[in-house]
Design a binder for these strands. Structure first.
Length: 778
DNA sequence: AGCAACGGCGTTTTT
DNA sequence: CGCCGTTGCT
């Protein structure tokens, strides 16, 4: 244990850490050691007698939660940190609701609908109401409903609220309230919650059941909230309820980095915190440890253009560092090329690794030109964002089977699989099923169960009955087998896996691999001890709820993979990189054309720019293109207004990459500047044929966090041994991770957990022996 | 029932 | 431009 953990803090940090009881607000400027303060504070609480079980810490990503736990463990030693309740608002509440949802009439194994699922339900309802989905766009309606829930407004209130109704009338969409009402009823009938429900229903639960509120008020005696500037009213009210008894609430945030108002976050929460409680301790962390003076000065000056912030003065002891480079290119493609070239150059000149670079953009769609240029130069990269692994069709299909197995009320999933793979339950049958379900006021599944009785005939009734029997056989397996075995059985019985296996097209192969990856992730889930709380819930239901909440920031835990990262600025929140490229600094793109109509919107864009700048530790490039393709046609853009807000002193506007040194700002003609024959290109050309025929580029696809780095082919005679005989020092073989050595053993005798070092399987893994299949070598 | 061709639309940002 | 959903054909 580190005895001197307080010595590693500056005065303000220490002040924040040693404050134990009563509300405290930590205003933490960018790079001011916020995470360190949070983790040290948790450790300090525990050192001073607070039980880890009584600490709730809410973070912005699951990855942040995991890291936090590790860091606390490092400070304290031992494994007490395992008992902390750390996670995102959504995942923590999902877990609590898993224990309590029945009180609200939901199954505890409720399904969590992602945005696509939710929009699909909405679209169904719009069609049922005979409304035009061109006018009532599901997307628009979804956002309206989402906003309502985030401000804790239910369907009834929504339809009665004058202001809201006026807005809908003015938008010529008066029936949104009606759709909302039906949507709420439908998802409830489906036993499903969407993302916003995880907050909304949590609030309802605490409001409705005093004994539940009481229970959690006393469980969570100490509450910490990271990124408080990005919380919404629903989150605010829940925290208010949970913290009401002990008032040991610690919020950490930076109003200058509030960038999520589009999903209901309100900066008011942090601005008002001082008024919410008596005697709020306020600590400001103003020393930046991350960036050079140049970077920080530019950031400070940019954000000064916003009005009304919490007063603070962010400063640094770091060196002045390089100037910030401002670069214009002719087109978006040249922008991509410039960035790739510069990365090559910087690697040589300053000995950077790929992992030191990040490319930040405003919209996901901008990634393309950078992908191409990086691929061309064989620079490995990884894109964060875009379509997640779990949104892929083949994965959603597979998961839909698992969901229905867990929760037969889930119609969205049921409709997805009822005739996939084809089993003779076509459109007519499905429609009839829906009609019957409505008529008898039962679920679709119950109609299927009683198909014969309800008048289905011939081949149809046989097909339905076979389907019902199959799903029930999966359900029966749940009590005797772990989630992985059930999933495998599902793949076999449905022919899902075989069907994909027989598809020898490239896409078919990729889909097959993705499904294997899904199975791997389930396997790893069942075998890895739970790091997020005291419950070792390894059930299928727990798995399904968890994967829906995984985000892009959560993956890419493989810190050791040496790749350039590409992501939106939103996704980069909380991260830092030695070298940052912020690209696409053009009017209508950044600031976004959608956000230049009010001062509030524009200020949020500026905060976003501030976040982008402050990600950089040592070097920062800002680029923009004269023209770029948007929606298929070439458009001209002015340079971003933000560029004019930066202090000249720290900016190098003359650095224009391939040629022109003049006139980085002016419009006009720069023809001839793009004959890119700079040194990096030449270097690249010097080694023809030396490039790997297979580019090292990682698959941009988001993969589950828990997938192994390498695949091990098990020995032919692989048979699992009885885990009872396993002890530290033994050599074992794992079907996926390969050969390894048992480093340590812990856990109760009937639930032993081994720490095993797999040299080729991704290093040290914790494995629950009850679930893992291991072969003893010696 | 399954596939090809076509057209329309979209880009903020994400749990 | 590229994706998605719809249409219309077989």
């Amino acid at each position: 244990m580190k005895a001197n953990y307080l010595d590693e803090l500056n005065e303000q940090q220490r002040e924040a850490v040693i404050h134990i009881n009563g509300p405290i607000m930590i205003v933490a400027g960018a790079g001011s050691g916020k995470t360190k303060v949070l983790t040290t504070r948790i450790a300090h609480l525990m050192r001073n007698g607070v039980d880890a079980f009584n600490i709730l810490s809410l973070t912005f990503t699951n990855k942040a939660a995991r890291e936090m736990k590790e860091r606390v463990e490092k400070i304290l030693g031992g494994s007490e940190a395992r008992n902390l309740y750390i996670g995102t608002f959504h995942s923590v509440f999902a877990r609590l609701l898993r224990a309590e949802a029945h009180r609200l009439g939901y199954p505890n194994d409720f399904t969590i609908y992602d945005t696509d699922d939710a929009k699909s339900v909405i679209k169904t309802i719009i069609n049922e109401l005979n409304l035009d989905d061109k006018h009532y766009k599901p997307n628009f309606v979804y956002n309206r409903i989402s906003a309502a829930k985030n401000s804790l407004m239910g369907p009834e209130e929504y339809q009665l609220d004058h202001l809201v109704q006026q807005e809908d009338m003015r938008a010529n969409r008066p029936l949104i309230g009606k759709i909302y009402d039906m949507y709420a009823k439908r998802t409830f009938k489906n036993g499903a919650m969407d993302f916003d429900d995880l907050l909304f229903k949590m609030y309802i639960l605490l409001k409705t059941f005093p004994e539940v509120l009481h229970k959690y008020q006393h469980k969570f005696k100490y509450i910490m909230i990271d990124e408080y500037q990005d919380t919404n009213p629903a989150q605010y009210e829940i925290i208010k309820l949970l913290g009401a008894v002990n008032e040991n609430i610690c919020v950490v945030g930076d109003d200058a980095q509030s960038i999520y108002s589009f999903r209901g976050a309100t900066i008011e929460n942090i601005l008002q915190f001082e008024k919410d409680y008596d005697d709020v301790k306020v600590v400001k962390l103003e020393q930046n440890y991350r960036s050079t003076k140049s970077i920080l000065n530019v950031a400070n000056e940019v954000i000064a253009h916003n009005k009304g912030q919490i007063e603070k003065n962010l400063w640094t002891d770091n060196t002045e560092g390089d100037t910030i480079k401002l670069v214009r290119t002719m087109t978006d493609n040249e922008e991509g090329k410039f960035v790739a070239d510069t990365i090559s150059e910087q690697k040589l000149r300053n000995h950077y690794d790929n992992r030191d670079f990040v490319i930040l953009y405003r919209t996901n769609a901008q990634s393309r030109s950078f992908e191409e240029s990086l691929r061309r130069k064989a620079i490995p990269y990884r894109i964060f964002g875009g379509l997640s692994f779990y949104q892929r069709k083949e994965i959603k299909d597979y998961v839909a089977y698992l969901r229905v197995t867990m929760n037969t009320r889930d119609e969205e999933s049921l409709k997805r699989i009822i005739n996939y793979p084809v089993r003779g339950i076509g459109k007519t049958t499905m429609e009839k099923t829906i009609v019957l379900a409505n008529e008898h006021n039962i679920t679709m599944w119950q109609v299927l169960e009683r198909a014969r009785e309800l008048g289905f005939k011939g081949g149809t009734v046989e097909a339905i009955e076979a389907f019902v029997v199959m799903i029930k056989s999966f359900q029966a397996l749940l009590s005797t087998h772990n989630a992985y075995d059930v999933a495998v059985a599902v793949g076999k019985s449905t022919n899902l896996v075989k069907e994909l296996f027989n598809d020898k097209t490239t896409e078919g192969l990729a889909r097959y691999e993705n499904v294997q990856e899904l199975l791997n992730s389930i396997k790893e889930f069942t075998e890895t001890p739970d790091e997020e709380g005291e419950l070792l819930d390894k059930s299928m239901g727990s798995y399904l709820q968890q994967i829906t909440l995984l985000t892009d920031a959560d993956q890419g835990t493989d810190e050791n993979s040496d790749v350039v990262k590409l992501m939106t600025i939103h996704a980069a929140k909380g991260l830092e990189f030695p070298v940052v490229f912020t690209v696409g600094l053009e009017e209508t793109l950044f600031p976004s054309g959608m956000s230049i109509n009010t001062r509030e919107e524009l200020e949020e864009e500026r905060r976003l720019f501030y976040v982008a700048i402050t990600r950089a530790k040592a070097r920062l490039w800002l680029t923009y293109a004269n023209s770029r393709y948007r929606f298929g046609n070439l458009v001209q853009n002015e340079p971003s207004r933000f560029l004019e807000e930066m202090p000249e002193k720290f900016i190098d506007r003359s650095y224009a990459g391939g040629g022109s040194v003049r006139n980085a700002f002016g419009g006009g003609n720069t023809s001839g500047w793009s004959n890119s024959n700079n040194m990096f290109d030449r270097m690249q050309k010097k080694t023809p044929g030396q490039q790997p025929s297979q580019p090292v580029t990682q698959k941009p696809a988001a993969k589950p966090t828990f997938s192994p780095a390498t695949t091990h082919v098990p020995s032919a005679d692989f048979t699992p041994d009885d885990p009872a005989g396993m002890e530290p020092g033994m050599q074992v073989e794992h079907q996926k991770f390969g050969f390894g050595t048992i480093a340590a053993m812990e856990g109760a005798p009937n639930n032993r957990i081994a720490t095993i070092n797999f040299p080729k399987g991704g290093g040290e893994k914790k494995i629950m022996l009850n679930y893992a299949k291991l072969r003893i070598i010696r």
